[in-house]
Design a protein around this nucleic acid. Structure first.
Length: 518
DNA sequence: GAGAATGAAAC
DNA sequence: GTTTCATTCTC
């Protein structure tokens, strides 16, 4: 098999993705091994927790990767590809999916343009941000002129500003990673990307991969390949000679070479890889020859699904992290590669609307602010109108959400939540169609309950939903903080986002006399 | 529409 | 301290 990586065709900001190529014949054994491992997930409800790598300060690790303008990228991969079957209940919720961040700060123009191009592309997820620093959803610090500015290493002053936010462990990775320094010293284009997907032993491949920077500056992510029976992560050079992939996501690009009609999702599970909660996905490219593709990605990783639009397994996480309203991913979804006609033509994914919907300020000093501004400008130009005010944006945002959410967005995105009709009936407050109408974001338990109510309902057929609630509550109480953390983080992120968009969202509705209604 | 859970925020 | 309301779905 040959994966040809083309450049600049469709810049796409992607997250950390691992592509795991196994031999089909050995897939079962590996699957069993992984399942065995997953059953010990520290934060899986019902399982013992493991605190070692889930401390509160267990923030993403910082790594730098080498920059290299390498020759053409053709990935030669084995045609024998295995897959991992997944069938057990997904009691494998991970808690600490604190995202990586790439820190950069540069006021250059080119990178803004490029960023805008990426952002306004219909297939362009936003750069990631972190839960623990929501005031700046995305931090990009750049110094090297040889890179896209948002891929450049942070200046000392800027980095020190962020330094305290990283854990000791986090920075230990950085200081212990001599490769980082090499990359940084050998070339101005050394990249400091934040990642928790690797450990010390894992640095080698990263730096020996010439095109890693491309992934890092976009999403603080990298690809890793795993070939054949050997579970050892291989240097990507073992498989290919990547070249010139600075502006395109290899993961998505791999779709192109791997399944021209997209990759059909056939299984998924949450797992832990290198200390981070990840999704293990198995795709079917649709051809027997190609075999199955197993990939790993973050929980909030967005995928572009045929006839559906942007989707993820955690739409609420994705919308908070990347500002991309998503459907929920389901088995059978066909993920489309960049440049795919169906993906290009299906340009109502809401991504662009999302950009315009966020009222970022320059204080955010983030790419998101840039994207937001540019999206507004583009929207203004498209509509033939002038500049739009934040209030107008908000109004339009909600208005658009009505139309979008009713037909497209999942129920658990901020957008759809904010406008979903509240049928309390007697309320004399704003109507359901009012722009200021919003719903409270779900708290941690609600997120948990929503995710597992169906599962429990199936587990206890015939049980009344109220009984399911009792069970869920019982389970919740028995869960350790570690296990709850993911939901807590998500709830906090949602609340923060909602507070920013609708500060009055929590206002209690009152009758005219002041008595509270229900 | 009540109710069953938990939790955040407004009272 | 109390109340409301987020989700879900059966009764």
């Amino acid at each position: 098999m040959v994966w040809e990586v083309k450049r600049n065709e469709m810049p796409s900001a992607m997250q950390k993705v691992q592509l795991v190529m196994d031999k089909r014949t050995s897939g079962m054994n590996e699957s069993l091994e992984m399942l065995k491992c997953n059953e010990k997930l520290s934060s899986s409800p019902g399982y013992l927790s493991c605190d070692e790598h889930m401390e509160l300060d267990d923030l993403p690790e910082l790594q730098a990767v080498q920059i290299d303008s390498a020759p053409p990228a053709i990935f030669h991969l084995s045609t024998d590809v295995s897959h991992q079957e997944y069938s057990r209940p997904s009691w494998s919720q991970r808690t600490s999916n604190i995202s990586e961040s790439a820190y950069a700060c540069d006021s250059g123009v080119n990178w803004l343009t490029e960023l805008a191009n990426i952002a306004t592309s219909p297939q362009s997820p936003l750069m990631q941000c972190s839960f623990y620093n929501r005031s700046s959803p995305v931090h990009i610090i750049a110094t090297s002129k040889s890179l896209h500015s948002y891929a450049r290493p942070p200046p000392v002053s800027s980095r020190s500003e962020h330094e305290p936010t990283f854990s000791r462990h986090h920075w230990k990775e950085m200081t212990s990673a001599r490769h980082e320094r090499q990359a940084s010293s050998e070339s101005e284009s050394g990249i400091f990307c934040v990642s928790s997907l690797s450990d010390d032993d894992d640095l080698g491949w990263c730096h020996s991969w010439p095109s890693t920077q491309w992934h890092c500056f976009l999403k603080g992510t990298r690809l890793r390949f795993h070939k054949g029976h050997n579970k050892e992560w291989k240097n990507v050079e073992d498989f290919a000679s990547p070249k010139g992939c600075e502006n395109e996501d290899i993961a998505m690009d791999s779709y192109r070479g791997y399944g021209s009609d997209g990759l059909k999702l056939i299984s998924h599970e949450e797992s832990v890889s290198f200390g981070q909660s990840v999704l293990k996905l198995t795709f079917d490219p649709g051809t027997v020859v190609d075999g199955l593709l197993t990939a790993e990605c973050r929980l909030d990783h967005p995928f572009y699904v045929k006839n559906k639009g942007w989707s993820s397994f955690y739409p609420s996480l994705t919308v908070v992290q990347h500002g991309i309203p998503c459907y929920e991913m389901h088995l059978g979804d066909i993920c489309l590669p960049p440049g795919h006609p169906d993906a290009i033509n299906f340009d109502d994914s809401g991504v662009f609307d999302t950009f315009k919907s966020y009222d970022f300020t320059p204080m955010d000093s983030s790419a998101v602010y840039v994207l937001s501004s540019m999206a507004r400008q583009r929207r203004a130009s498209l509509s033939g109108g002038g500049a739009s005010s934040p209030e107008l944006e908000k109004t339009e945002y909600n208005k658009d959400c009505v139309s979008v959410s009713s037909s497209q967005l999942p129920s658990n995105t901020l957008c759809s939540k904010a406008v979903k009709s509240h049928s309390s009936g007697t309320s004399n407050t704003v109507s359901a169609t009012s722009p200021s109408k919003c719903k409270r974001p779900m708290n941690a338990f609600m997120l948990f309950a929503k995710k597992y109510r169906v599962e429990y309902t199936q587990m206890y057929p015939g049980k009344d939903n109220r009984a399911i609630s009792v069970i869920l509550g019982d389970r919740w109480k028995k869960m350790k903080n570690e296990e709850r953390r993911m939901y807590t983080l998500e709830a906090k992120a949602l609340a923060e986002e909602q507070k920013r968009l609708n500060p009055d969202c929590w206002k209690r509705k009152r009758t005219n006399s002041g008595s509270q209604q229900h």
